[in-house]
Simulated assay, not measured.
Amino acid sequence: MKLMYSEWEQERKWLRKKAKDARGLTDAEEEQLDRALAKQLKERIGKRASQLWWQLFGIEGHRLDSIEHEARFIAHLDKIFAYPTASQLISATEAPRHLHTASRFIRNRRVAYQEVEFLAPSASRLLELMLYGYFPFEDTWIFLDRRSERSSDGFNKPKQWLALPRGVVPTDRLGITIEIGIFGDNPIRSENPANLFSSLQPSEKERLAKEFGSVGTHTQWLAKIVENIFTESRSWLRSRIRISFAGEMDDQQQSLAALLANGGPISGKRVSMLDGNYLNCHPDNLVIRSSRGRRMACSICREPTTPDQSQLIKDTGGSSARLCHACLKWKLKIDNERSWLRGACIKV
């Protein structure tokens, strides 16, 4: 055991010393690392695009194996995204098709994963069809808010269009952010997928090499840095790489509705949709209201609501609660079932 620990300590000592060379790599060596990392990132993004598509739309029966099916899917999106519509943002249909692989969860006699193959356009086109990334709209770039966490007041953040400030052009079409780090430590962050290594600070390059390098020749050491970064491991000691797209990071951005209604956010004012659809940013559907005071919300689902979409009810104790129509329908159904069961018990 003492000998094994000594070997491990010698290896860590060698890596700490070798990692300092990462600060002074030649341009050719940095370019080599950038190309290798970009290739791995492309493969990882391609797998994620295929998996996302299958989970979101493939299970529902949507297909993209022909131009006709792709056009039909875009028409389906137009029913969800009222304004701007998906057809306004998505480029022309592409003809080439590729074979994609995804996994689906099946429950038979035992839990298992099954691989699924389907024909569809390229991975970048799949992400575009799922409205991932930045899209030019009028005089700004917009993107979907894909954050799933709850806000501090307990309300679910609605899925809506966000906008970059006018005049700001994104450097990456998908808004890719790469985070690399170990458990319990601040991750190394980069927004340059094509120049991931060369865009880092010298201290970050050294840290990356120290964490992911392996003992060997100089060429082997460089190759292992790339390989170990993308090695999947369940151990918390190993680092993981996280790839985020536009709208997935918790960055404060202005909503497209506020930009169209009054040129940007105004303190004490908020923009609401007349029809309650946050994906309908048509100017005729936007109304400016005061943001002071408590927001109206359903007492069950906690979703924001309006007087037209909800009802104020009172219980036997005299307390009042506001329920949206969907939760009110569900509550009436549950109350009727309980009344029926109570009556059946009395008869018995």
Rank of each mutant, 00 (worst) to 15 (best):
H69D: 11
Q254Y: 00
S244P: 00
E149V: 10
G213E: 00
A28F: 12
D335Y: 06
A209E: 01
R150N: 15
N156Y: 05
E31M: 11
I67V: 13
Q10D: 10
A95L: 11
D335W: 03
E7P: 03
A86V: 10
I346T: 10
K269H: 07
T306I: 02
G276I: 04
A257K: 09
S267G: 13
F137I: 09
I313G: 05
S6D: 15
S214G: 00
K347A: 14
S190R: 01
R107M: 13
Q160G: 03
L196P: 01
D185M: 05
T316C: 09
V348K: 15
S291A: 11
T231W: 09
T217P: 04
R240H: 05
W236Q: 14
F81W: 10
A38D: 09
D335H: 03
R110T: 14
Q32C: 10
S66A: 00
A257P: 02
S267N: 12
E117L: 13
Q253W: 11
W161F: 13
D284M: 06
D275P: 06
H282S: 08
K333V: 13
A123F: 09
L208N: 02
G58E: 08
D250F: 01
L286K: 01
E232R: 13
T231N: 07
I59L: 11
D251Y: 07
E204H: 04
H218W: 14
S339H: 12
Q254V: 04
I178N: 04
F245G: 05
D21M: 02
K20M: 12
K205W: 01
R109E: 14
K18Q: 15
L15Q: 05
L3D: 15
L164D: 13
S290V: 04
L286C: 10
K79L: 13
S290W: 02
S148T: 14
A223K: 15
A209K: 00
E43N: 09
E30A: 07
Y113S: 11
S203L: 12
G61R: 02
L312Q: 06
C281W: 01
P170C: 08
L52C: 02
H69L: 04
V348Q: 12
